[in-house]
């Protein structure tokens, strides 16, 4: 009798597994039910987490679009090559054809002296003044678009030097600064996006932790009684972990909707802006994996935040008689 007294009666493995699965399913659904029972509070928490997760994601979208719009659209890096005035149109065509064969050149547009003058006349409003000139003062011009994979500052400098070295070329105007600035801007934006992401992830952890701490206080009696009846730390912590998970998951879903909404909202204006630059650029969202990781990171952060808070707080709650 004494021996069989307190010894733990082992249930078969299968029964224990069923019990375990059942408990988890119950807690998983039960915690969701609790959140549903107080919709305003839940929505507020989801919004806070959603916004915190959406901000770095939106920065990432911005960087992505800048990257795609800048280098992708060769015109942004167009190099103007002014040929020597003595060159006639056929010679200019030859130079253009030669340049088209280069790997780092995507497109060469020839503007002959006459075309240049006509355009200038049209745009400048100096038409009559130009009539007074006997000679065309404009040289033939080549507008060169570098190929998309030759838009790094170094590659552009190399192309510029090569062009400058041609005997037919009078002057090369390449806006190198633009390329360098864009690269630097992108690098900065990426850093800001990553830094903001880390900070806001920390914020999500703290928010979830604080909210779960509040949940623990409101259920203190239940926790104490459960511990008196032999509930393990894991058992007591479980509902709070699931609650944290739902907070994070819901926040992640909301962040996903925010990003999709923001892209849809901004997209038409970006398309119009691109059209003004003669580009048919379409705004990019996040890749599918980006959206998935947005939701996943929400869920993981929620789980971790509640895990830290609950582990720390629940250890302090010890029952008495």
């Amino acid at each position: 009798m004494a021996d069989e007294g307190l010894s733990v009666t082992r249930r078969p493995f299968r029964a224990r597994l069923d019990g375990w699965l059942e408990r988890h399913a119950q807690v998983c659904v039960g915690t969701l039910g609790r959140l549903y029972a107080r919709p305003i509070a839940t929505l507020l928490i989801w919004t806070v987490i959603g916004v915190a997760l959406a901000l770095p994601a939106l920065l990432q979208v911005t960087v992505r679009n800048l990257e795609a719009a800048g280098p992708g659209q060769g015109r942004a890096y167009a190099i103007d090559v002014f040929l020597k005035p003595v060159l006639g149109v056929p010679q200019a065509r030859q130079v253009a054809d030669r340049l088209r064969e280069r790997d780092d050149v995507a497109r060469v547009e020839l503007i002959t002296a006459e075309e240049g003058l006509a355009e200038f006349r049209l745009r400048s409003g100096f038409g009559e003044a130009l009539d007074a000139l006997t000679d065309n003062p404009l040289p033939a011009t080549l507008i060169i678009s570098p190929s998309p994979n030759s838009t790094t500052p170094a590659a552009l400098a190399h192309l510029r030097d090569a062009l400058q070295a041609l005997p037919e070329v009078d002057q090369v105007v390449a806006d190198m600064q633009w390329a360098e600035r864009l690269q630097a801007l992108l690098a900065a934006a990426k850093r800001i996006s990553n830094g903001a992401g880390l900070l806001l992830a920390l914020a999500v952890l703290l928010v979830v932790g604080q909210v779960v701490r509040g949940d623990i206080e409101t259920r203190r009696a239940e926790i104490e009684v459960s511990k008196l009846l032999g509930a393990s730390d894991g058992f007591v912590r479980r509902p709070f972990l699931y609650t944290g998970f739902w907070y994070g998951f819901g926040g992640g879903m909301l962040a996903l909707l925010l990003v999709l909404g923001a892209v849809a909202w901004v997209s038409p204006t970006v398309v119009r802006l691109a059209a003004l630059y003669g580009s048919n650029f379409r705004m990019l969202g996040l890749p599918i994996s980006g959206y998935l990781s947005l939701v996943a990171s929400g869920a993981v952060l929620g789980w971790l935040g509640s895990g830290f808070a609950a582990t720390w707080r629940l250890r302090q709650i010890e029952p008495g008689l």
Binding site: G5, L6, L228, G230, S232, D233, L321
Partner: peptide, 14 residues
């Protein structure tokens, strides 16, 4: 141990 206490209490009615 801490975790053993929980299992221990499950064998006692209070």
């Amino acid at each position: 141990s801490r975790s053993a206490v929980a299992a221990f209490r499950r064998r006692i009615g209070m």
